[in-house]
Write a protein that binds this DNA or RNA. Sequence first.
RNA 1: GGCCGUAUGCCCGAGGGGUCAAGGGCUCAGUCUGCAAAACUGAUGCUGGUCGGUUCGACUCCGACUGCGGCCUCCA
Length: 478
Amino acid sequence: MSLRLYDTMTRSVREFVPRVPGTVGIYLCGLTVQSPPHIGHLRSAVNYDVLRRWLLHAGYQVTFIRNITDIDDKILEKSVAAGVPFWSLAYANERILADHYARLGVLPPTYEPRATGHVPEMHQLIEKLIEDGYAYPAADGSGDVYFDVTKFEAYGQLSGQRPDHMQASPDGPDRAKRDPRDFALWKGAKPDEPVEARWPSPWGPGRPGWHIECSAMCWRYLGPEFDIHGGGMDLVFPHHENEVAQSRAAGLPFARYWVHHGLLNLGGSKMSKTDGNVIDLPAVEASGVRAVELRYYLAAPHYRSVIDFSDDALQEAAAAYRRLEGFVQRATELVGGASPARKGRKPALNPAFVAAMDDDLNTSRALAVVHDLVREGNAALAAADKGAVSRILPEVRAMLDVLGLDPLSPQWSQSRGGELRGVVESLVALALEQRAAARARKDWAAADAVRDQLKAAGIVVEDTPAGPRWTVEKPGGA
RNA sequence: GGCCGUAUGCCCGAGGGGUCAAGGGCUCAGUCUGCAAAACUGAUGCUGGUCGGUUCGACUCCGACUGCGGCCUCCA
């Protein structure tokens, strides 16, 4: 049994066979950094992070490229409006993006190339396309270069679009196209555009078209042919369609599997900056949901299904995650916590979990396996069955680790409060002693008062057969 | 107009042609507990958008319809 993935090109689930045994090259379309990311963007990153971790777990050497589009119409427009160079706006957003990725536990890519750093590669591709008759410089002297859609017979294969059935685009300003469906490879500089947004080219100063950058960067970092190309469903057409077209026309075999994830909707339509129906990580955290809980929320449904964002569903996901987390914490308190993996040998994963993940990354089913095992673990915990607990705990953590959700991974387990932690510990210990004394003399009112006061301070006390245990509630709570 | 996708209980969300339709949340009851919390156990769907068809048998396959969403213009 091995990984099977849904491939958009063939519209079917196919067994994943890497081009070179033992290695996988993945290209994920990252963001156009025109503004800070919303959680739809983060879903993209999390979905691919799960794929990547699953491949790593399977023993592949994974080269993961995720690009940054740091020049485009909107970036330019916004930067002009703000009176700053486009690159400063792009970079500011890029840094926020990197921070949000990191806070969600998304592994850094192998490399994160920027569009503006690959203009020479784009020129090479464009020149080849012109030479071979697939592209042409506009006849109006604008400096634009267009891809000639009619010259590439397979155009429309990825998206299932038939060029003759496509709605004519209201291509107002796009002048000298031979066919309305042709798309820009290179955009000649317009007089009112900032000089810093111009690069010299054989066709005059200008800047890259949107699609060509990805073809150039795939080629540069993954070679003429690579394993997996991905992005959101909304990129299938025209972005990915155009990418394949120009890459294949230029003689590059390009991606072997196309993996697209579902979008995240809010209020009945996809979350989008342009529509303003956007929620971002800080907003989620302000509602009392931690980053790891958001990750659970984003990773639990199948990656190809649409998520209709709702605060209720997010809270439910957070509760579900806390159940898993609670077991891991209590189990670790009982039997100690050796790291599940990274010790030469990883614990064998539950076969049902493996089967679910191999089946086009069915994280829902995989998590059901985790929950089942946690129930068993909780029962063992209640019975103080150390043997069972120490068998189950590493299994649970190993599975959660594949999903980037192991509560004890350094990513999530950093204790809040830093150096004040010790102070809090001794103060709580003091309070608990008083409560223990009150309980000993059956003064329940006094005992409960202590518990209530701690609770008000954000510290939750629970009595267990092994004595009271306490945890710090979410920050800012109550 | 064209191309995709989707429709599951109070909510989120999987499955597989034929044992009880995963798992989580919520609610209720029970166990444990001084109480609480956590945990565990049990309960909650004559029904799977609608209508047809295929089949011995479909929620699961096919078709139509309806609703919703995505794309055809920048978009994860």
